[in-house]
Design a binder for these strands. Structure first.
Lengths: 200, 200
DNA sequence: GTCTATAGTGGGATAGAC
DNA sequence: GTCTATCCCACTATAGAC
């Protein structure tokens, strides 16, 4: 079928565009990324780019939506018998690993203007809420397991997970070049979950 | 003396400008803040603004330098007998309190272009290095006291302190409006230093 | 040293040919 | 649905009168 083949090509190009956006977002952030950058990187004209995504915001939303969808899939792939606290550790480590590979955006935290427009993006918000629900469920379970301290409320915990996943610390550590990727991940996961203090 | 009085006025205006910049940086970030915004907020013309600061980068650098200088002063004000770990907690809480009051920038983490220009700004870098040195000294002392876990290297610890001070978690928690300022500070400090896990 | 006015430019978005 | 060319606005920075 010719139509199906065409659609396949179309989809493939969209994937390529989103790949480029991912890379550029993590490199320059939303505000400094230009549509020319994206078009150049994909190797198409800016006009063609606008046939796929009608605005810069839509483009970023598509990239972030793909990331969140991947997060859900990763959560689903974790064996059911894993404890809630280990699932939280796993997903944090996974996010950081993705970051270190260079493909992942700095997330909405970067740009306040992007944040606002994402709130109005239905398909982004749908996935974001699903991810959020999963996180809160895991935290609730971990709390029931007695794994969490009472001193840190659920909200602080969940938000911290998000923010550590796009923490500039990673960039600084990478630039320093003293630790390799897995060492960075281990240290960040330990610092987030267990803190800095020596266990008594 | 007339000259001295004039200079006093001049300095006062520069303070007012930096106040405005502080507020705008925390609100919109560097890339989205415009010189018109700054001039409007101070209530002077854009042309006059450029008589005080010759570029947008210099303006941001001045604001961040003032913040870092205040950080040094706050460190100096802590009683000498305070333990290193408590000093680190104190300065983190102080930074967060400043953030919550609305005056403090999201720091360089926001904008990569700003980061680069700050590196070339001598007076900024001088203060930044002094602050950095103080932090590393405190961490070294805390480690000698046996207060820190071996699992988290010094670099990860120091960078994390910086990044938590400008963490988007604070904004989310504020928007949520479930916790008051001091509760947010307590929870963030606890989460950073002690982590999420229940103490065995 | 303050203002108004404007130069110059970069980038988001669109038009129109093929 | 891809390209080239261009519009147009917003923003940094400067000129020049007072």
């Amino acid at each position: 079928m010719r139509i199906s083949f065409k659609k396949q090509q179309f989809d493939a190009r969209e994937e390529a565009i989103i790949d480029a956006v991912n890379h550029l977002l993590s490199e320059k952030g939303f505000d400094l990324m230009t549509m020319d950058d994206v078009a150049d990187r994909v190797g198409i004209a800016k006009g063609s780019l606008y046939k796929h995504f009608s605005s810069k915001e839509k483009l970023a939303a598509a990239a972030l939506t793909r990331l969140l969808t991947a997060t859900l899939e990763e959560l689903d792939s974790i064996p059911g018998e894993t404890s809630a606290i280990d699932q939280l550790k796993h997903i944090l480590a996974w996010s950081l690993r993705l970051r270190l590979k260079g493909g992942v955006p700095h997330l909405p935290s970067t740009s306040i203007s992007l944040q606002r427009s994402l709130m109005l993006n239905l398909s982004y918000m749908t996935v974001a809420l699903r991810v959020n629900k999963r996180f809160y469920a895991l935290v609730a379970q971990a709390r029931k397991d007695g794994a969490l301290t009472d001193e840190v409320p659920d909200d602080v915990l969940v938000f911290t997970l998000y923010s550590r996943a796009c923490d500039p610390t990673v960039d600084f550590l990478l630039r320093d070049n003293k630790l390799n990727h897995e060492q960075i991940i281990a240290a960040m996961v330990h610092a987030t979950m267990g803190g800095f203090l020596a266990r008594s």
